[in-house]
Structure formats: C-alpha cells, structure tokens
Design a protein around this nucleic acid. Structure first.
Length: 722
DNA sequence: CTAGGGTTAG
C-alpha cells in the first residue's frame, strides 16, 4: 500500500473500529504493521483497540503481544487482556492479570466475574462481589447478571439476589432479569420464570434474549405448544429471530419428543437459511439422536454444517453413545474430532466416557480417564467425575468407582445418584442406603433418579419394607411424584419377594397405563416363584402390547415345561413360530488384552475353542467332586427328546461358561475377570461359576441385563437373590 | 473494555 499522505491517528482509529466491527483480522494486522511504521506517537488508545481486535478474533497470542507493546497501559488495556484470557478458559491467568492492575475498576471486576460465572464458579464470584460492595465501586447490571449466573445452582441465593436487585432498582436491566428468569426455570420454577417475563413488560427492558429464555423455559418444562406459540409471537411482532431462538425452539421439540414438529421446523429453517449453522445444527442433532431412534439423520445434518464447532462434535458423540450398539462410533467420532484439530473439553470427555460404559470396556474407560487427566481440560469438573463413577461401576468395578467418588472435590445430586446406582447394581445395598443417608445429611437434594437407584438397591436385596419406606418418603417428604419407573421398581420388589398378589395390585392401581415393562417385571417374578396362572395373565398382557418380543413366549413355554404341562408348552412354541418371532440368541463377551471375544452357546468359531473345551472338561470333573449337579432344567433344548447326557453337555457350552473359561485360561492366576451377557444369566451357570470361583480362587464378575454378579470364594454378591 | 438467553454433559 502506497500512502501519499501521512496517516493520522484519526484515520487509524476509524479504520480499526471498522475492522473490529467486521472481525477483519487480516486488514487489522496490516493496519497494525502500518501503525508501527508510521510516525504517529505511541497511543494507548490505538494499542488497546488492537488488543481488542485480536481478542475478538480469537487470536490470544497477538492480543498478548499487543498488550505488552502498549507503552502506557491503563485499566482498559488490562480489562481487554483479562477478557482475552477468559475467552480461552485461562481463568488462572486472567486472575493473575487482574491482580496486577494498579486500580481495578468496575469493568475489571465485571469481566472477571463473568469469567468465573461462565464456569459456574460460585465461591470466587461471591468473594469478588463482596469486594465490589466494600470498595463501593458502583455495581451495575453487568455485575449482577454475572453473579446471578454464577450462583444459578442455588435458588435460595438467587432469590436473595433477586430481592437485592429489586430493592436497589437494578431490575430495569434486561440482562439481570433474563439471568433470574433462566435460573428460576432451570431450577424447576416455571411459574416464577413466567412472572419475571411478564413483569419485564413491553417497555421494561424485555428484549429478544428474554423471549429466547422464555422459550427455553417452556421447553425445560415440557410445554412444547407454549414454546412454539412464543416463537410465532416473536415472528408476528417482527422481533429479531437468531440462532439462539432456533436452538431454543428445537430444544422444546426435543423435550416433548415431537419428532414430526421438529422435522417441520427443520424444513422451515432450511428455507430461512439457518441450516448449516453449527449452533442450530447441534440442536438438530440432539433432536434426531434423541427422538428419531437412530443416527442416520444426524449424520446428514452434520454433513450440511459449514463450520462444525466443538459443541457440534460433542453432540454427535453424545448421540452415538445414547445407543449401545453405536457407542463404538462414538469413540470413532471422538478420535475424528481430534483429527480435525479440536481439543476435547470436559463435555467431550463426559460423552466419550459414557460410550465406554455402554461398551463395558474397562480398558477403554481407563484410557479415556488417563487422557482426561493428561489433557489440561478441567477434568476435575464434577460432571467428568460423575461420568467416570458411572463408567467404572458399569464396567464392573465398583471399587474404582468409589475411588473416583472419594477423591472428588465436591459432590452433587448426580454424583450421589451414580454411586448409589452403582452399589445397587452390584447388590451392595448397605452402601447404597448409607450414601443416601449421607446425601440427606449433606443437604444434597435427592431427585426422582435418586429414588430409582435407592429402590433398585432394595429390589436387588429383597428389602421389601425398606423399599416401601423410601417409596413413601419420596412422596411425603420430598414431594416427588413417582413415575412409571418407580412403580416398576415396586412391582419388582414385591414380585421377587414372592408377594405376587401385591405386585399385581400395584399394576392395577398405579396412575399410569401399565406398559410392557410392568408386565414383564411381573412375569419374571411369576417365573421365579412358579406361579403359572398369574404368569399366563402377565404374558398375555405383555404380548398384547409387544407381539413380536420373544421373551414372554420363551418364559411362558419354559414355565409350562417345568410344570410338566407339555402340551401347553408346545402350543406357545407353535404360536411363536407361526408369528415368526425369533428368540434373541444369548451371547457373552469378555475383553482380553483390549480385544473383545464374543461367544454364543455351543460356539465353535473361537480360535481357542479346543483349549476351552479341554479346560471345561477338567473343570467339570473338579466341580462334580465338589458336589456340582448340572441343573438340566436350564438346558436350552429345542426338542424335549434330547437325552439327559446331551442336555448336560449343552449346559456346559452355554455362552457365559465359554467366556468365563476363556477368561480364566487367558489371564494370569488371581486376575479378576469380567464377562458380559446380553440376557439374564442362567441358573446352572450361576451355580457353576460360584464353584469355579472357589476352585480357582478367582474373582469372576458376570454382568447380565439386570445386574452384576460378583462371584468370589464360592459365593455370589447377589446372595442368590435374583 | 465487561453482560444476560443457548446447542453438548452427568
């Protein structure tokens, strides 16, 4: 560029302003170079604005340089730098810069408060707030909205702050009211959120952000129609609709599981040019992954996005890990994301950890855990630790789960829920209930998921009275309305304990239409207690709802068979055949040296099948000496004519036994092993594995569809109650 | 110079 006239300070000012407004980094850099070559005396104003430009364009390094080249930095310079660091989540450095300011002003405080608020750090924010008040710096709407956002988890505190806002007359700021509104909604107080929205009124500061916040609030409270109504009203009034609005409406569709409405909205967005936006795309992917039952549409949406961001990747990972059989794609996505230059954040780790839980792969889980520690993501975040607790217990290791739990700097409801559920699945009901008591002592509020965990702890150990106590406590003391799942727990609890009539009564009297899950639960209980008559009823109800599910046919025919009612057993089987219902083949898998080995019954495809058979043969001898009697009732024979010897042989080749045997010969003495089965463990295998654990001195864990069975020294953690 | 609403998460 050839300049005929010397450039003046004013020229730079104007050009730079334009660059900042346009986020034009390239022209800005040229301007910066020209400024150095020019004869203009050093200007703090210009330097500051160069720093600001770099900060806004996400160029932290240049912002730092520009700051250090500022000869006479003022508060503005420092504030801009703080903001640049905060945007890159470098809060510690931001804090250090703040501490270096000779005389921080209210903007310095506001900037730092906002940075802490973004990360939900309530403590430091409140301390800064105190300082502001002591120093009488003149707090404003920025300060208050920041403080309220930071304390969003504590409604009590937010209520106090809200009062303060009103008393001091700060309720004319939209930002403050919007923060209050969002907080009330997040914490479940829709009517209060509505009140704030209403009272803001037309002239009283209500802006587009308020509308967006209100749409989200409706979504959070399953008021899909109201959310869409608000959106229509916005359009009608000619208010500015942006990607936030779009994403908010999408959330509402997702929350009410309205896939059809969501699709229509998607179509509308394509017309108005919002598709291709990463922010909106995340909302779409969330909708399709949660409501469409597959990831097919998500992939399509993803490919349309012009500039995918970290959240979009995270949403994809999260979508894959909603599905057990797609969780490997979730891991692939996690790697792909990094290949595309994105550094995983805490949320990525939460999603990918949950994929590992689904895969029941302790080795992958540990790798992810290690990676989280090594990466400088704030892996200490409660959410990441919660996910790790869930992962370790779902991968069969409740001790490691507890270790993570114990080293966490703080716990919230989800942490307790994960740990309580972990113990419940492993049948350590004492610990579950102890943690629940601890939760109450520490004033961590239980939610409806807590009670599912607590009730299932009672289910797995047959603690009927306790279960009933907690069921009542939930309604009476905590005002949590029991959902269908809680009733299922109660049916399970009573049914398994042999109180079949009472279980049936729950189905009859509960305030929901009983679904297949409730009948299946009752059916399972009937099988356990050999009540054929009730089983017939439960199976019929189940079949009415799900005619193509094989489970009730199989269960019923087995029950008829064991009651020697052969004809009826044959009828059920014939019906099943006629309807073309196929039984899900049982399979078990085990991970050895990071490789998963899958077995089905009578499997001969495994390369080491010979060794496995030899081992099983030897083991069978030892087991028989120790008093093992094969329980041929569990032999899955298609034909009743099969000889007892043959049945015994088939029992020996059940998938879980094969997997256990393979695990034992492939690992060192004393190493615990984990086998996962896609159906419930068979009764004969349960007996056999108990003995095997005693004979080999190994700890053998089998996870079936229901719970964990940890076999040790001849006993199972379920104490044979399953 | 600073903000509020928001997609992902347990």
């Amino acid at each position: 560029m050839q300049c005929t006239y010397p450039l003046q300070l004013q020229t730079f000012r104007n050009l730079l302003k334009a660059c900042i407004a346009q986020r034009d980094l390239i022209t800005g850099k040229i301007l910066h170079a020209l400024y150095f070559k020019s004869l203009i005396p050093p200007s703090t104003y210009l330097s500051n604005h160069f720093t600001l430009l770099y900060s806004k364009c996400g160029s932290l390094h240049n912002a730092q340089t520009s700051f250090h080249l500022t000869q006479y930095p003022n508060v503005f310079s420092y504030n801009t730098l703080i903001n640049a660091y905060a945007k890159h989540s470098l809060i510690h450095i931001a804090r250090r810069v703040f501490d270096e300011i000779p005389q921080p002003d209210i903007v310095s405080y506001n900037t730092l408060i906002a940075a802490y608020a973004d990360r939900g750090e309530c403590g430091p924010t409140l301390r800064l707030f105190e300082e502001v008040r002591e120093l009488r710096l003149g707090l404003d709407g920025f300060t208050l909205s920041g403080v309220i956002t930071a304390c969003g988890d504590d409604v009590g505190l937010v209520r106090q702050l809200h009062c303060f806002v009103v008393v001091c007359g700060h309720d004319c700021y939209a930002s403050v009211n919007n923060a209050v509104l969002a907080c009330y909604s997040r914490k479940g107080f829709l009517s209060e959120a509505r009140r704030v929205f209403r009272e803001m009124g037309e002239g009283g500061g209500r802006d587009e952000v308020s509308w967006n916040a209100m749409i989200v609030a409706c979504g959070q409270h399953r008021e899909g129609m109201e959310a869409v109504g608000l959106f229509r009203e916005m359009v009608r009034r000619g208010l500015k609709v942006d990607m936030f609005t779009m994403a908010s409406v999408l959330t509402a569709f997702t929350c009410v599981k309205d896939l059809v409405g969501g699709r229509q909205f998607h179509g509308m967005m394509i017309k108005s040019g919002f598709h291709g936006n990463s922010h909106v795309g995340s909302g779409l992917i969330d909708l399709y992954s949660k409501c469409a039952g597959s990831m097919v549409e998500c992939r399509k949406v993803f490919e349309e996005i012009t500039a995918p961001d970290l959240v979009l990747w995270n949403t994809m990972i999260s979508g894959f890990s909603l599905y057990e059989d797609l969780s490997e794609d979730g891991l692939w996505c996690f790697r792909e994301m990094q290949r595309n230059g994105f550094r995983p954040d805490d949320c990525s780790f939460v999603c990918v950890t949950s994929a590992c839980s689904n895969l029941s792969s302790p080795s992958l889980g540990k790798q992810v855990h290690a990676l989280a520690i090594k990466s400088d993501v704030p892996y200490n975040r409660v959410s990441v630790n919660n996910a790790l607790v869930a992962m370790y217990s779902k991968c069969g290791n409740v001790h490691d789960a507890r270790r993570v739990f114990d080293t966490m700097p703080e716990h919230n409801t989800v942490s307790l829920n994960s740990m309580i559920a972990g113990y419940a699945q492993h049948g350590v009901e004492v610990e579950s209930l102890r943690l629940f008591e601890l939760m109450l002592e520490k004033d961590i509020a239980p939610n409806s998921i807590t009670f599912i965990a607590v009730l299932s702890a009672c289910v797995h150990t047959g603690k009927v009275e306790e279960g009933q106590k907690y069921f009542n406590m939930m309604k009476e003391r905590f005002c949590i309305e029991p959902e269908a799942e809680h009733y299922s727990c109660m049916i399970d609890l009573l049914g398994r304990a042999g109180k079949l009539k009472e279980a049936e009564r729950i189905i009859e009297t509960m305030p929901f239409n009983p679904g297949s899950i409730e009948w299946a639960t009752l059916l399972g209980a009937c099988r356990k207690h050999g009540n054929v008559e009730l089983a017939v009823k439960a199976a019929n109800e189940f079949l009415r709802l799900e005619p193509y599910n094989a489970a009730p046919y199989v269960m019923l025919s087995n029950m008829y068979a064991s009651a020697a009612r052969w004809e009826e057993a044959a009828t059920v089987k014939r019906l099943m055949r006629e309807r073309g219902v196929k039984k899900k083949p049982g399979c078990s898998w085990i991970e050895i040296d990071k490789k998963v080995h899958v077995f089905v019954a009578e499997d001969t495809s495994h390369p080491m099948i010979k060794e496995i058979h030899v081992y099983m043969g030897k083991m069978l001898k030892k087991m028989k000496q120790a008093g093992y009697v094969p329980d041929i009732r569990w032999a899955l024979v298609k034909d009743e004519e099969v000889e007892p010897d043959e049945r015994e042989r088939r029992l020996l080749y059940h998938s879980e036994k094969l997997a256990v045997a393979f695990g034992l010969i492939s690992t060192e003495e004393g190493v615990p092993i984990l086998v996962v089965k896609n159906l419930r463990i068979c009764g004969d295998c349960h007996n056999a594995v108990k003995l095997i654990s005693a004979l080999t001195g190994r700890e053998i864990t089998v996870r079936d569809t229901h719970r964990f069975h940890c076999f040790k020294e001849g006993h199972c953690s379920c104490r044979d109650y399953w």
